[in-house]
Design a protein around this nucleic acid. Sequence first.
DNA 1: TTCCGATATTAATTTTTCTGATAGAGGGTC
DNA 2: GACCCTCTATCAGAAAAATTAATATCGGAA
Lengths: 307, 307
Amino acid sequence: MRSLKQIRSFVAVFEEGSFTAAAQREGATQSGISQHIRHLEESLGVELLVRDGRGVIPTAHGERYYGECVAILRRLDLAEAEIGRASALGGEVRIGLMPTFTRAVLAPTLDRFIAVAPTVEMRVTEAYSGVLTDLVRKGELDFAVVPGFQGAVGLSTTLLIRDREMLVASKNRLGQHLTPISLKDMDPLKIVVPGPQNTRRRTIETYCASHGVAIERRLQLDAMMGTLDFVASSEWVAILPGVMMVNDLDGARFDIRPLDQPALYSDFVLIEPTRRVLSPAAALFASMLRETTEQTITIRQARMREA
Amino acid sequence: MRSLKQIRSFVAVFEEGSFTAAAQREGATQSGISQHIRHLEESLGVELLVRDGRGVIPTAHGERYYGECVAILRRLDLAEAEIGRASALGGEVRIGLMPTFTRAVLAPTLDRFIAVAPTVEMRVTEAYSGVLTDLVRKGELDFAVVPGFQGAVGLSTTLLIRDREMLVASKNRLGQHLTPISLKDMDPLKIVVPGPQNTRRRTIETYCASHGVAIERRLQLDAMMGTLDFVASSEWVAILPGVMMVNDLDGARFDIRPLDQPALYSDFVLIEPTRRVLSPAAALFASMLRETTEQTITIRQARMREA
DNA sequence: TTCCGATATTAATTTTTCTGATAGAGGGTC
DNA sequence: GACCCTCTATCAGAAAAATTAATATCGGAA
């Protein structure tokens, strides 16, 4: 007979591309997963996955069945969310944020959220997008906010916010605080960048290369706090999303100038497991996060107009 | 943990309005069903059903959850139908028909169907609508065709055909074979009717009462073959759906005249369990049944125009 | 009250699932 | 090609869960 465990196992294997990884994600053994898939295939009378020594590849049947299974799990999740403690706006909300978001917008969002939903247990994980993506896929986070990307199996993405990238340097080094700047006018740059595993690195390199911005020296720093601190006390610069600099608009510590000619925008998306539905509390937090972020951007735009 | 058995049990209890009946339908014991429901309620943290000594009544939560559960089971069924042997147009098709349909349209439909799908195992059950409805709800039939009615929990209905009712008598007793007739012109009637448990009985009585048709004598006969035979060899008449008389349009045995002023139409609907999806073979049979029936009606209309 | 028809509970049993160990298969590397 | 590494399949015993039959309990009707 068909069972939900079998379906969950299949979805996990499909998304992870491996029995072993699926077992880990489902908190089971590889042996158990193997048996579930076998029973599923037997009872359907169809091969769902081709095992090729390196992992697994779904068959055409597998692809189609996966789509249905995800829809079923999602619907199941929805049914429970509708009934259970869901409506009470309680439970636990586990989210993942990049430093971009924890630096400035997390605190005010938390303030507002806690006021409205005092009984909800919040758990915020700070990490870079790769880690967060994995955690979301494993179901260990309800959702995460990561740079916009080309999607991944089993994840749904929703655009949360689009924000402008800023050139950040220590006070009085750039001048014209908050007015647009063309990077080419500033080169050659001594720039602090994240490591190649970070999505931002590629964005920055691509931008510089395709607009003829010369880079004199690169410093690879995978610590956001450290980057800011270093930039504040040196002649090095960094390119950062505006949303993390809202608390420094006064110009007391940094010169901040939006990239121009052309402007560079970054998308941040909310990712969640397709097979699940956001709990009301999580959805509320997500919408508050978006609102707060939008407000900070609005504030910044007002300041920029003044400048 | 949630399981499909629990969900199936809940759906069965909801639809049957009773643990005991649900157990029977699911081929389980009352004890097992009781435990499944208890676990479901515990894990949702919500009461789904109120037990009141006489049976069970769903709570508001139960109602909502039921809707989701049916959708999930249906989707699951769909997923399997899409993948499995479904596409091969094999397997078994179990349908239920009333005598109305078995008398004239079943045979030609079967001919066509068997030609196209020779490997499908057909199982046709002939019975009256109440029995067929129960069998469909229990999942012992893929679908049945019954008189149009006001629906039942757990059943989906689709209009299959609308047909005209006929006054049937033995040859040369009515005259004007195949031309419309006003019943009032023929009263008082000596009429053969089915028992009160049959949907048609109410239809006929209502029609006569509301159009001032006097009935001289009633003969209650719950045997369709017997009714036809008796009518053919006596002065009694019967009111029957046109679709069952297509083989007697030649007037050799019966005088058949459509009711007029006003015309009386009957709807026949296809009923199937909402939680399931018709297999391709069953769907094909249903559509062939509709086609055949429509053709017989078209033929009759042509004959009527000639007459 | 008493009975009747229904659900709840319980403990033993059966079935299913899960695990840990091991075998086997398929690529990559030297 | 031999070796190694990683991955999946299989198996038997262990653990967990479902199922059953018997029985307790409950609620309403007469």
